[in-house]
Design a protein around this nucleic acid. Structure first.
Length: 827
DNA sequence: TGGCTGGAACCACAA
DNA sequence: TGTTGTGGTTCCAGC
C-alpha cells in the first residue's frame, strides 16, 4: 500500500497519522468517531483544509487496523506505493513518495518482524498553502484568478477514524460475499462507498489487499489522468476489475458469470475465479491478496478532496475548525465499479495506463468555456495531481459514517438530510424546469444512461433568485428520496456526473456523508441559473446498500428519487444561508417507468366535499382501465374511506386522465380534510399517493378550474419548489418556515404551520416566507445515514448556515402512510 | 470508438 | 410446496 501523503503545512504534524499508525496495531473495533477520532482531530488538526480535508480519509482511520493487515499490505504485490520519479516534487512528491517517516518512524516494524506497513498517510495541505506556498500550484492560482470568487461549499475538513461504521456488516460481508460480475465492482464500490468493513477483521482490512487501483468514474474526471506516474502500479484508472464487462483480465478472474445478483441479503452465489464467495453473508471469504477492499485513489475522492474553495470559504472552514465527518469524500459513494475495482491486484497492477494520460500533461484548456475551464482546471490542475497517488479509497471503507444526524455537528453546513427552505429573505432557489418524471438510472455495470432530462426536452434548470452579488456560488446537487418521508439523500441512488460534448454545464463531484454531490457553478453572468445537463443517476445495488450498517431502507421498489439542489449563500455576517429545493419525483426503474402510472400534475388540488368536478391528471402510463382511488387515511395509516372516482375513458390518454372528484364521505366537515388518491392500473401497479383536500361545502372555492398554470408560486409559494406544479404534498418537503418558528418550539412541539406545505393553500394563505431570521433546518432523525424518516425541524435562528444547535421543532411528516402531519415528536 | 438508449434475458424473491 | 408474477440486475445491440 502506498503511503498516502498529503502535503501538510507544518502546523499539521500529521499527528493523527502517526498516532494512528501507532495505534494501528491495536486490534479491535475502532473507537467511536466521537471519541478517539475526535480527540485526534482536535489535537492534531486544529485546522483542516476545506477542500482537502473535507473528504480525505485520514490516517486516523486506521487506528483499528490490525497489524497483520499491514503485513499483508506490504507483502502484497499489487500494491505499491512506489514513489514515482515522475512525481512532482514538493507537495506532489510528498504524495506518493512522501517520506515514510513522515508519519511513521522508519523503524516501525511489525511484531512479526515484517516491515511495518506504513500506515496510510495523508498529509493535508491547506488549500491556501498550496496556492501560496508552492509554485507548483500555480494552476490553482490561476484558477483563482479565473474564478476568484467561485465559492465552493465551505465544506469543512473532516478527519475520520475508520471502522466506526461499516458499510456492510462485517459478519455479512466479505469481498466475496458480494460477487458476481460486480464483485469486483461492488467491492470496490462498496468500499469506496465507505461501506466500511469492520475494524478488526483482517479480511476486511484494506491492508490485506495489495490492490491499489484508483478508480474513476469518469474518464473525464481525470485528475488521475495525468497521474499515470503517480499512480501506484501504473494504472490509476483501469484495473481489470474496473470493467467487469470489457476486460479480458477480468474474465480471467471473474470467470463465467453464474447467476445474476439479486437484491438484498447478499444471496448471490457467484464464484469469482478462485474466490469462492461465501454463500452466506456471514461467511467471510478467505482473505486473499487479491480480494480485498480496494486501496485506491479515486477521482471522485480526489475531486472531492480537491474541491476548491474561495478564500472566504477557507476562512470559514478555518474558523469552523471542524471535524465534521460528514464531509468525507471518501466516505462512501460507490463509484462506477467497473472502472473502479481494485481487487485482483495482479491484474490491476499490470494494467498499464494509456500513455496519453500522463501525469500532469493535461492542459487546461481551451476545451472548456471560461467557467468550465476554471473548474476543469481546478480539477485537473497540478493541485490535484499532486495527490493522485493517494489511495484514499482504501481508507474509505473504514471511515466512520455519520449514522446519526446528531453526529453531524459541522458548524458550517447543514447535513444533506436536513430539511432546508427553498426561500429565505430575498433569496429563492427555484427549479425553473423540472426533470422528467422518468429517468432510467444506470448501474455501475452499465454505461451511463445520460443526464436527466426535462419533460419538454432539454434539461432541468435551476436558478437562484434574489442574489445580486457578483460572486459565483456553487450549486450542489444530490439525489434525494421521493418517498413519503422527509427528504434525505437516497441510499440507493447517487448522482452521476455526465460529461461530454453534449454537456454544457461544468460540474464537479464531491462526496458528503456517503452521498455524492455534484457541484455546479452558479454564475452571475448566467443570472445565477444553471442548466442541469450534467447529472445522471447511478443506481447502486440494493444488496450493497442494504447491508450497509445502519441502513434501514430497502431498495426494492424504492425507485423514486428527486434531484435536490442546494446553494449556500454567504451572508454579510460571515455565515452561510443554505437553501434547498427538490425536484419532482423521478422514477428510476426501467420497469416501473414502463408500467407504473405516474401522476405529475393534477388540475385541482382541493374542492368542496360535494365533489363532482372534473379533475385532469397529467402523468404517464395512464390506461383506459386506470382507476383513480380516493382514500382517507386514519392517523395510523388505515384507510378510513376509499372511493373510486369516475374516469372518463374517452378522454383518457397515456399521459392524461380525466377524473371526476367523488363526493367526500362526510359532507359536513367544517375544516378542510386532506385525503389522497392514486391511479391504479391493476394489481400492484399504482401511482404514488397524491394529495387532495376536501373543503367544507360552504367554503368558497379558490381555485377549481383545471388549468395549465401550474404555478408553484401561486399555489404553494416557495415551498412548492421542486414539487409538482400543483401541490404534491407527499413531496412537499421543502421547508416552510413560519414567520416565527418559536411557536413550534414550545408547548411540546405543537402543530406547526409547516403543515401548510401539505395543504393546498392559495397564495394568500400560504405560509409567509421566512426571512433570514426565521430560516430553519429540519433535520431528519435518522437512525442511519439515510434512515431518517421523521425529523425534527431545527430552526437555525438567523442563518441556516449557522447550524446552531438544533432546537426540536414540529415538522410535518409527509407520509401518507403516517399519521397526519399534526405533530411530530422529537425522537 | 465510446456514450447513450431501448429492450430484454436471467434470476431470485414475493405473492 | 410448487407455480407464477414481479422486480433487480446485467447484457446486448443499435444509434
Amino acid at each position: 500500500m502506498p503511503s498516502t501523503s498529503f502535503p501538510v503545512p507544518s502546523k499539521f504534524p500529521l499527528g493523527p497519522a502517526a498516532a494512528v499508525c501507532g495505534s494501528g496495531e491495536t486490534l479491535g473495533p475502532a473507537p467511536p468517531a466521537g471519541g478517539t477520532m475526535k480527540a485526534a482531530e482536535e489535537e492534531h488538526y486544529s485546522y483542516a483544509s476545506p477542500g482537502i480535508g473535507s473528504s480525505l480519509p485520514l490516517p486516523a482511520a486506521h487506528t483499528s487496523l490490525p497489524a497483520p493487515c499491514h503485513d499483508l499490505q506490504t507483502s502484497t504485490p499489487g500494491i505499491s506505493a512506489v514513489p514515482s520519479a515522475n512525481h512532482p516534487s514538493g507537495y506532489g512528491g510528498a504524495v506518493d513518495s512522501g517520506p515514510s517517516g513522515y508519519f511513521l518512524p522508519s523503524t516501525n516494524t511489525r511484531p512479526n518482524g515484517a516491515p511495518a506497513l506504513e500506515s496510510p498517510r495523508i498529509e493535508i495541505t491547506s488549500y491556501l498553502g498550496l496556492h501560496h506556498g508552492s509554485g507548483q500550484f500555480f494552476h490553482d492560482v490561476e484558477v483563482e484568478d479565473v474564478l476568484p470568487s467561485c465559492k465552493r461549499s465551505p465544506s469543512t475538513a473532516t478527519l475520520h477514524l475508520p471502522g466506526l461504521e461499516a458499510y456492510r456488516d462485517p459478519s455479512c460481508l466479505s469481498p466475496a460475499s458480494s460477487l458476481s460480475s460486480r464483485s469486483c465492482n461492488s467491492e470496490a464500490s462498496s468500499y469506496e462507498s465507505n461501506y466500511s468493513y469492520p475494524y478488526a477483521s483482517p479480511q476486511t482490512s484494506p491492508w490485506q489487499s495489495p490492490c491499489v487501483s484508483p478508480k474513476t468514474t469518469d474518464p473525464e474526471e481525470a485528475f488521475p489522468r495525468g497521474l499515470g506516474a503517480c499512480h501506484l502500479l501504473g494504472s490509476p484508472r483501469h484495473s481489470p476489475s474496473t470493467s467487469p464487462r470489457a476486460s479480458v483480465t477480468e474474465e480471467s478472474w471473474l470467470g463465467a458469470r453464474g447467476s445474476r445478483p439479486t437484491s438484498p441479503c447478499n444471496k448471490r452465489k457467484y464464484s469469482l475465479n478462485g474466490r469462492q464467495p461465501s454463500c452466506s453473508p456471514h461467511h467471510s471469504p478467505t482473505p486473499s491478496p487479491h480480494g480485498s477492499p480496494r486501496v485506491s485513489v479515486t477521482e471522485d475522492t480526489w475531486l472531492g478532496n480537491t474541491t476548491q474553495y474561495t478564500s472566504s470559504a477557507i476562512v470559514a472552514a478555518i474558523n469552523a475548525l471542524t471535524t465534521d465527518s460528514s464531509l468525507d469524500l471518501g466516505d462512501g459513494v460507490p463509484i462506477k465499479s467497473r472502472k473502479t475495482t481494485l481487487e485482483h491486484a495482479p491484474s490491476v497492477a499490470l494494467k498499464v495506463e494509456p500513455a496519453g494520460e500522463d501525469l500532469g500533461t493535461t492542459p487546461p484548456t481551451s476545451d472548456f468555456p471560461p467557467e468550465d475551464f476554471a473548474f476543469q482546471h481546478l480539477r485537473k490542475g497540478g493541485f490535484c495531481e499532486q495527490y493522485l497517488s493517494v489511495p484514499q479509497a482504501s481508507y474509505q471503507w473504514a471511515k466512520p459514517k455519520s449514522l446519526s444526524p446528531a453526529s453531524y455537528m459541522s458548524p458550517s453546513l447543514p447535513a444533506l438530510d436536513w430539511q432546508l427552505p427553498s426561500h429565505s429573505g430575498p433569496y429563492e432557489l427555484r427549479i425553473e424546469v423540472q426533470p422528467k418524471s422518468h429517468h432510467r438510472a444506470h448501474y455501475e455495470t452499465e454505461g451511463s444512461r445520460g443526464a436527466v432530462k426535462a419533460s419538454a426536452g432539454g434539461h432541468p434548470i435551476v436558478q437562484l433568485h434574489g442574489y445580486l452579488e457578483n460572486e459565483p456560488l456553487t450549486l450542489q446537487l444530490f439525489i434525494g428520496t421521493a418517498d413519503d418521508r422527509l427528504l434525505r439523500p437516497h441510499a440507493f441512488y447517487q448522482v452521476h456526473r455526465i460529461t461530454g460534448k453534449t454537456v454544457s454545464t461544468t460540474s464537479h463531484e464531491a462526496i458528503l456523508s456517503n452521498t455524492k454531490v455534484l457541484e455546479i457553478p452558479l454564475l452571475p453572468e448566467n443570472n445565477m441559473q444553471a442548466i442541469i445537463d450534467c447529472a445522471g443517476i447511478l443506481k447502486l445495488r440494493n444488496s450493497d446498500i442494504e447491508l450497509r450498517k445502519g441502513e434501514t431502507d430497502i431498495g426494492r421498489k424504492n425507485t423514486r428519487v428527486r434531484l435536490v439542489f442546494r446553494v449556500h449563500v454567504p451572508q454579510p455576517n460571515g455565515r452561510m444561508l443554505s437553501l434547498q429545493v427538490a425536484s419532482n419525483p423521478i422514477e428510476c426503474s426501467q420497469r416501473s417507468a414502463q408500467e407504473l402510472p405516474l401522476v405529475e400534475r393534477q388540475s385541482t388540488d382541493s374542492y368542496p366535499v360535494v365533489g363532482g368536478k372534473k379533475m385532469i391528471l397529467s402523468g404517464h402510463n395512464f390506461l383506459q382501465d386506470s382507476k383513480v382511488i380516493f382514500v382517507e387515511k386514519a392517523p395510523d395509516g388505515h384507510h378510513v374511506w376509499e372511493m373510486e372516482a369516475k374516469t372518463d375513458r374517452d378522454l383518457c390518454k397515456p399521459n392524461s386522465l380525466v377524473v371526476e372528484i367523488p363526493p367526500f364521505r362526510n359532507q359536513r366537515i367544517t375544516t378542510p380534510v386532506q385525503v389522497s388518491f392514486y391511479v391504479c392500473n391493476g394489481k400492484r401497479k399504482r401511482s404514488q399517493y397524491q394529495h387532495f383536500t376536501y373543503l367544507p361545502a360552504n367554503v368558497p372555492i379558490i381555485k377549481t378550474e383545471p388549468t395549465d398554470d401550474y404555478e408553484p408560486a401561486l399555489t404553494c409559494g416557495p415551498v412548492s419548489q421542486g414539487l409538482s406544479p400543483l401541490p404534491r404534498p407527499y413531496y412537499s418537503q421543502q421547508l416552510t418556515m413560519p414567520p416565527d418558528p418559536s411557536p413550534c418550539l414550545v408547548a411540546g412541539f405543537a402543530p406547526c404551520p409547516q403543515r401548510s406545505t401539505m395543504m393546498s393553500t392559495p397564495p394568500s394563505t400560504s405560509p409567509k416566507l421566512h426571512d433570514l431570521s426565521s430560516a430553519a433546518y429540519t433535520k431528519g432523525i435518522a437512525s442511519s445515514g439515510h434512515g431518517g424518516h421523521l425529523g425534527l425541524q431545527l430552526p437555525a435562528a438567523e442563518a441556516p448556515a449557522m447550524q446552531e444547535v438544533p432546537r426540536p421543532m414540529a415538522v410535518q411528516p409527509s407520509s401518507p402512510e403516517q399519521p397526519p402531519p399534526t405533530l411530530l415528536q422529537p425522537q
